[in-house]
Amino acid sequence: MEQLSTSSRLTRLDNLHLTGEHRPVSDPLADLRRAATLRIHNGVGLRPVPEELTETVLRECWQMRRQRAFWLDLTAPTPAALQAVATLFGFHPLTVEDALSPEHRPKIDEHEDYLFMMFQSVAGISDETVLPTVGVGHCATNRLAVYLGVGFLVTVHDRGFAPVEEVAEIVDARDTTMDQHLDLVLHAIVDRMIDQVFPVLSGVEDRIQEIEAHIFTEQDQDVLPTVLKTKRELMTLRRLMGLQREMLLRLSRREDLPCIEAKTAIYFRDVYDHAVRLEETCVMLIELATNVAEAHLAVASRRTNEVMKFLTIFSTIWMPLTFIVGVYGMNFDYMPELKVWWFYPFLWVVMIGIVGGMLMFFRRKKWL
């Protein structure tokens, strides 16, 4: 039964990356070598391993992890490659499935000798939409899966994940002390991941203010769908930030987490403060988007009322004129006033007087 369950999970993982009737069989270690970067602590700091990555090297790293800490970074690994790492290091198969899921919710799971964490970060801002989206109401995010234990750190992410790349460059440049402790490396990655959301929200705020200005200048432009879409995306981002805020709070409190040192907890508390600011900013922008939507509806309603008022006044003025013209347009043989030469100009004076009197009345009532 256990073999069947594991086989079915691996089948689901393969389907995440490969489709079609005939899927090519790949070498997990070859895929792993293409995706992995291994850094081992040499007593001074984390340094990249120059030799070829093999199963023997990984097994030795795992066995010696308490004497020589290591950081294994996996960039867009295949399911087979990640499963090979999980098998060597004893990671639970369900964590592999979660790590390969592109839209998995942020979470932190505590296992026997390691922590498994899922983070989500906004990828950036698009020129076409307020927030980049995948489908309706979903922020385009980059996932980061983390295995953290005493003496080892394994990160799994897509290509072009800037926070990991920046931290890796700093570590390889050997101009930092963060590589003395793996939890500091994790802090540096998460800190950059959270901070890169601030420019995105700043762009969203500018876009909402631009839409607000268009409401009063370009009445023919229907901006309501854009505003509502922005609001949905902000609500999604707020939910992600709320989940990650709880994760960071737990890391900052070191709730029975032996892989987080006491002196590192204060750094996670700082990132927690940033996450709180992001969530508060999302709430503020959601309220701003709601106000803009309400302002748009109010302006549209006022414009409709102005049109209806104009049509009503126009119709009211024409009603007595239509009555007069209708009366004297009837085909009766005996209408004595029609024989009087001055009656035609007199009728024009009466109709003009009616129009002028009604306009004065409307203006006095401030309807015009």
Rank of each mutant, 00 (worst) to 15 (best):
V185M: 02
D195H: 06
D175K: 11
T176E: 02
Y147G: 06
A168C: 10
T155H: 12
L184P: 01
E169M: 10
E166I: 02
L184T: 07
L201D: 03
G151N: 10
D191E: 13
Q180S: 11
D179P: 00
A173R: 11
I194L: 14
V146F: 12
S202C: 05
E205L: 10
A162D: 13
F152S: 03
M193N: 07
M178D: 04
I189W: 05
H187W: 15
L144P: 04
R192Y: 00
R159C: 13
H181L: 07
D195G: 06
D172L: 06
H157S: 11
Q180D: 13
V164M: 06
A168H: 01
V164G: 05
D172K: 12
H157P: 02
G203H: 09
M193S: 15
T155N: 14
T155G: 14
F161Q: 04
G160F: 03
V204H: 00
R174N: 12
P163N: 01
E169N: 08
A145N: 07
G203Q: 10
G203F: 05
V171K: 01
P163H: 04
F161L: 08
R159L: 13
D172Q: 11
Q196S: 11
A168L: 09
D172E: 14
D158E: 15
G203T: 08
A168R: 15
V197Y: 00
D179T: 01
D183E: 04
L153T: 09
D172N: 12
G149I: 08
D183V: 03
V185K: 03
M178P: 01
D172S: 14
V197C: 12
L148Q: 06
V154H: 10
M178W: 02
V204A: 14
V167P: 00
R174P: 00
D158P: 12
R159A: 15
D175Q: 13
L153K: 09
Q196D: 10
R159H: 15
A168Q: 13
I189R: 00
R159I: 13
F152W: 09
Q196T: 08
D158H: 15
L201G: 01
E165Q: 14
I170G: 01
P163T: 03
E205K: 12
V197N: 11
L153N: 09
L201S: 05
L144Q: 07
D195I: 04
A162C: 07
T176W: 04
L186K: 01
R143P: 14
V185S: 02
L153H: 10
Q196F: 06
E169V: 10
R174M: 00
R192T: 02
L184I: 01
V146D: 07
A145S: 15
D191K: 03
D179A: 00
I170M: 11
V146R: 10
V200K: 03
E205G: 13
G149F: 09
L144V: 10
D191A: 06
V190M: 07
D175T: 10
D175S: 11
V200I: 13
H181W: 06
V156P: 09
F152C: 07
L182G: 04
G203P: 08
R159Y: 09
G149E: 09
G203S: 10
I170D: 12
E165Y: 03
H181S: 13
T177Y: 00
I194G: 01
F161A: 05
Q180R: 15
L201M: 05
D191T: 00
D191M: 00
R143M: 13
F161V: 08
V197H: 12
V197P: 02
E165M: 09
G203Y: 09
